[in-house]
C-alpha cells in the first residue's frame, strides 16, 4: 500500500522580466521605457510521488527544475495549479509543513560563513525544537558517516567546498525531514566527495525511508540513487518512468567498444555495425541490440586480436546527451512506443 507524498496537478509558474540592450543607450532606454516579458518557467506540470521513492529530476539548465523545487518547498508561490506535499499546500508555509521538509542547494549556502558549523547547528536545533538527545544522536550519526567529526568546530570559510557541502547536508537533515529536495548536491565536488555524498544519501534513505527528489547534471548521481526519473524540458514534463526504461528510450542497443593490438583492415565483420573507428582503425565503438550481445562479442573476440573491450557503463548519459541536443526524438519515441508520460 503506497502513500502519496507529493501530488502536482497542472502546476504553472510565470516570471516577469525585462530585456535590456547593451551599452549606455540601452541602459537609458530601459531606464525610461521598460519592456516586460512573461516567461513561463513551468507550465501544465503533473506529478505523483509515493512515500519512500527517490526521484531524479532531470533537464537542461533553465528547464524549470529549480523553480519546481522552490514551489515544492513553499519558497515561491505557483501562478496556478494544485500542489500538495505531505497533505499541505507549501505556499501556506505552515510550521508543521516546514518541519517535515528540507531543501539542499548545491549552489547556495545556509551556513554562517564566519562561525563554525557547530554554532549554526545549535541554532537549527532551536529552530526545529529538537531535544538534546535527538540532536546529539543525529549529529553523531551524520558527522561520522560523512567523516567530518573533526571539522564541526572549524570556521566555515576555512572549509573546502566538499567539506562545506557535507555540512550543508547535515544542516538540512538534522530535523529528520520526511521529504528531502536536493538541488544539485554534488555540483563542483571531486569524485571522492561525490561518492561520499551519494553513499550518505542512500544510507540516510535506508535508515529513515525518506522521500527524496534530486536534481543533478551528473548522471552518476542519478544512476546510483534513483529508480525513477522525471525529465523536464521547457517547463513541461517530457518523461516519467523507471530508470531502465529511460536507458532504452532510444532503442535497446548497447554500445560496445573494442581495442585491438593491430590495425583491422576494412571491411570485415565489424563494419556491418557501422561503428565509429579511431584514426588508425585500432579501436571501434559499435551498437549491438541487447539480445545479440553475447553472440557478437564472442565472434569479435574470435576474429580479431582484442586487447580490451567493454560495454558502456552509463547509457543514461548518452540518452541525456541525445535528448538535450535533439528533444524532438523523445516526442517521436513516445508516440511510437507508448511510453508513459
Amino acid at each position: 500500500m503506497s502513500q502519496k507524498v507529493i501530488e502536482v496537478i497542472n502546476l504553472t509558474k510565470q516570471f516577469k522580466s525585462y530585456k535590456k540592450k547593451p551599452g549606455l543607450k540601452g541602459s537609458l532606454q530601459s531606464f525610461f521605457n521598460r519592456k516586460y516579458s512573461i516567461k513561463k518557467a513551468v507550465h501544465g506540470f503533473n506529478l505523483e510521488i509515493n512515500k519512500g521513492e527517490i526521484i531524479g529530476l532531470l533537464g537542461p539548465n533553465g528547464a524549470g527544475k529549480t523553480t519546481l523545487m522552490k514551489m515544492f518547498t513553499g519558497i515561491i508561490v505557483p501562478t496556478s495549479g494544485e500542489l500538495t506535499i505531505n497533505g499541505h499546500s507549501p505556499w501556506e508555509r505552515k510550521k508543521e509543513f516546514k518541519k517535515k521538509i528540507a531543501l539542499v542547494m548545491g549552489q547556495k549556502s545556509q551556513l554562517w560563513w564566519d562561525i563554525p558549523a557547530m554554532d549554526s547547528f545549535l541554532l537549527l536545533q532551536k529552530f526545529y525544537e529538537l531535544s538534546n538527545q535527538e540532536f546529539k544522536q543525529r549529529l553523531d550519526y551524520m558527522s561520522e558517516l560523512l567523516g567530518v567529526v573533526d571539522l564541526l568546530h572549524v570556521h566555515v570559510r576555512k572549509l573546502s567546498l566538499g567539506e562545506r557541502m557535507k555540512m550543508e547536508l547535515m544542516a538540512s537533515l538534522l530535523h529528520n525531514p520526511d521529504v528531502i529536495f536536493l538541488d544539485e548536491p554534488t555540483i563542483g565536488l571531486d569524485l571522492v566527495a561525490q561518492e561520499n555524498i551519494r553513499a550518505f544519501i542512500l544510507d540516510f534513505h535506508k535508515k529513515n525511508g525518506t522521500t527524496i527528489i534530486i536534481t543533478s547534471h551528473y548522471m552518476a548521481d542519478v544512476q546510483a540513487l534513483c529508480k525513477r526519473l522525471v525529465l523536464i524540458f521547457d517547463g513541461t514534463k517530457a518523461y516519467d518512468g523507471p530508470l531502465e526504461k529511460f536507458e532504452n528510450i532510444l532503442g535497446n542497443e548497447k554500445t560496445v567498444s573494442f581495442t585491438f593490438s593491430e590495425e583491422i583492415p576494412c571491411c570485415g565483420y565489424l563494419d556491418e555495425f557501422h561503428g565509429e573507428w579511431n584514426e588508425g582503425r585500432t579501436s571501434v565503438d559499435i551498437r549491438v541490440p541487447e539480445e545479440n550481445l553475447r553472440e557478437v562479442g564472442k565472434k569479435v573476440l574470435d576474429l580479431h586480436p582484442v586487447i580490451e573491450f567493454n560495454t558502456e557503463k552509463m547509457p543514461i548519459e548518452r540518452v541525456m546527451k541525445t535528448l538535450m541536443t535533439n528533444p524532438e526524438v523523445l516526442r517521436a519515441q513516445r508516440d511510437h512506443a507508448n511510453l508513459p508520460a
Binding site: T73, I75, I101, L103, K108, S109
Partner: peptide, 15 residues
Amino acid sequence: RTGELDFDLLKPTHS
C-alpha cells in the same frame, strides 16, 4: 538579491 532568503523561508518560525 542573492536568493539566500530561501533558507529563511524554509525555517519553522515566522519569516
